[in-house]
Structures are given as structure tokens and as C-alpha cells.
């Protein structure tokens, strides 16, 4: 994609006011999460105040049952949840792109095999797969990343395969084939760059979905384990009735942060899709 194409996309993107606001919000949230060690006022794992204190000037979001600062915990939790979402997206996108390229370009029995495997994974109640897998591996940060990475690729595979099939019919690829260009060159230097845009858009929704799934799994106690804070396991601690009723500062901020993160990512992805392909109705 050349620079004028890029600036055109930026221009179209900036027409979406809600998406611009989401992008700014997202940059702030990701910035705060990445810089958590710098900006967090206290340690996320050591008690620094009285037990379960409501928000005050020293602890803006109060403290938890053992006196840890909730704001610091929230910042570190967002860091972990974003890391899980990002890595899971990278893994599933990589698997999906490779399988989709191979399936679409080679066709024949390779295509049939890959696509029926994709169908199998897709027609599986996804949460069941995740739950069974989460019960197998020691629950923890990296197992949850791998599990989420390995269940979200089928959508990417289908998308890339469809793209390759239509690109194969374009004149520039046909002329490459006629000119006797090596297969590797055609695949990686001609076809792959032209699928980057739709894959990026799809990846934003995988990112959002992975953050939601991490939260759900950690909430059920099968994901990221304490003392490492994640947005899901902070909410896991709020299942008791006394916390739910009497201490909303222990659970409401984490839930609101998840919603803000996921909706911002989704809105940015939607505007990006519209900016890249304005004819699509979506």
C-alpha cells in the first residue's frame, strides 16, 4: 500500500467521530497499562493501606480485602489482560494466515483437508473447547494465551483463503505466473501484502474477543491466577455477596474498564473496515 492510499484511509477513518474518540481512549488506556510500573502509585501485590477502605485521596479507588491499592492493581491487571489479548491475536492470526494462504493457493486435497479441519474447529462450541483445555493445562498466563490463540484462527483462515482465491484471478498475479515467477515470491510478495488490510480489521475483533474470553475464564477461576492481577480475576474476587453489595469499588471499575477497552477496540476496527473498504455495508 503506497503513502497516498494510507493517507486516504486516515482521512476516511477520521470522519468517524466515535471511532476517533475510541482511538484516543484506547491510546490512553494502553499507555497507562504499559507504563503501569511508572504511573501506578503503589505496588499491586503488597498491602499499602487499611483493609477494604473506600476510595479516598491516598487510594483513589480504595483498597482490597488485604489492603492493596485498587488503582495500582487495576493498572497492572489491564496490562496483563491486554498482553493476553494481544499475544492470543498474534498467534491466531499467524496460524490463520499461513493455513489460509496454503489452502487458497495450492487448492486440491490440501485445501480440502485444511478446510474440513477448520470447519471442525468452528462447529465446536468454542467455550467448551476453551474450558476443557483450561482444565488440562496448569492455569496460568501462558496457557491461557496459547489456548485462546489456538481457538480463534478459523475465521482468519477462511478470510485469507477467500482473498487468495479472488487474488489468484487478478491480472497482476496471473502475469506473475505467466512470467514464471517463483511460487514463494508470488505468495509472500504479491498475495500476502494484499490481504494485510482485511486481516488487520479482522484481528481487531479477535483482540476484543480474546480480552472478553480471558476475563470470562479468569472469572471462572480457570485463567490468570492470583496474585497476578487480571481484569477477570479481580471480578472473580467479587462474587461474594458482601463485596457485591457493600464494596462496589472492588468490582465496578474492573468491569467498566473491560467494557471500555472492548468497545473502543470494536469501534476502531469498524471504522478501519469502513475506511479500507467503503463499499462494504457492514
Amino acid at each position: 500500500m503506497n503513502s497516498s492510499g494510507f493517507s486516504l484511509i486516515m482521512k476516511r477513518f477520521s470522519r468517524h467521530k466515535t471511532a476517533l474518540v475510541s482511538l484516543i481512549l484506547l491510546v490512553i488506556m494502553i499507555g497507562a497499562a504499559v507504563l503501569a510500573p511508572v504511573v501506578a502509585p503503589y505496588s499491586p501485590t503488597r498491602p499499602t493501606g487499611s483493609f477494604s477502605a473506600p476510595p479516598d485521596s491516598a487510594h483513589w479507588l480504595g483498597t482490597d480485602q488485604i489492603g492493596r491499592d485498587m488503582l495500582s492493581r487495576l493498572l497492572y491487571a489491564a496490562r496483563i489482560s491486554l498482553l493476553v489479548g494481544f499475544m492470543a491475536t498474534v498467534i491466531s492470526t499467524a496460524i490463520g494466515v499461513v493455513l489460509g494462504l496454503v489452502s487458497g493457493y495450492f487448492g486440491g486435497w490440501i485445501d480440502k483437508m485444511i478446510m474440513s479441519f477448520t470447519d471442525m474447529v468452528m462447529s465446536f462450541p468454542y467455550i467448551l473447547l476453551v474450558l476443557v483445555a483450561a482444565a488440562i493445562f496448569e492455569p496460568g498466563l501462558w496457557s491461557i494465551i496459547w489456548i485462546l490463540g489456538f481457538v480463534n484462527w478459523p475465521g482468519v483462515t477462511r478470510l485469507v483463503r477467500g482473498n487468495v482465491l479472488s487474488l489468484r484471478e487478478t491480472n497482476f498475479v496471473k502475469s506473475d505466473v505467466a512470467a514464471g515467477m517463483p511460487r514463494r515470491y508470488i505468495l509472500f510478495s504479491e498475495i500476502l501484502p494484499n490481504t494485510v488490510a482485511p486481516v488487520t480489521v479482522y484481528a481487531t475483533s479477535v483482540f476484543a474477543l480474546s480480552i472478553l474470553d480471558e476475563a470470562a475464564l479468569s472469572f471462572l477461576g480457570l485463567g490468570v491466577q492470583t496474585p497476578t492481577p487480571s481484569l477477570g480475576n479481580i471480578l472473580n474476587g467479587a462474587q461474594s455477596l458482601t463485596i457485591l453489595t457493600g464494596k462496589p469499588w472492588l468490582w465496578a471499575p474492573a468491569g467498566i474498564l473491560i467494557i471500555l477497552l472492548v468497545i473502543s477496540i470494536n469501534l476502531v476496527g469498524d471504522a478501519l473496515r469502513d475506511a479500507i473498504d467503503p463499499r462494504n455495508n457492514g
Partner: peptide, 25 residues
Amino acid sequence: VTGSFFASSVPGFFLAMLLVYIFNV
């Protein structure tokens, strides 16, 4: 459309907690 994004961005378990908090507790 923004409303629909909002609906698909709320974690089910969090919505459940909110509902229990409001309508039960």
C-alpha cells in the same frame, strides 16, 4: 450501531453481576 457494539462488548458475567446487584440485592 453503537448500541449494538456496546451490547456485544459487555462481558456476560459482568452484566449478570450487575443485574443481581440491582434486581436481587
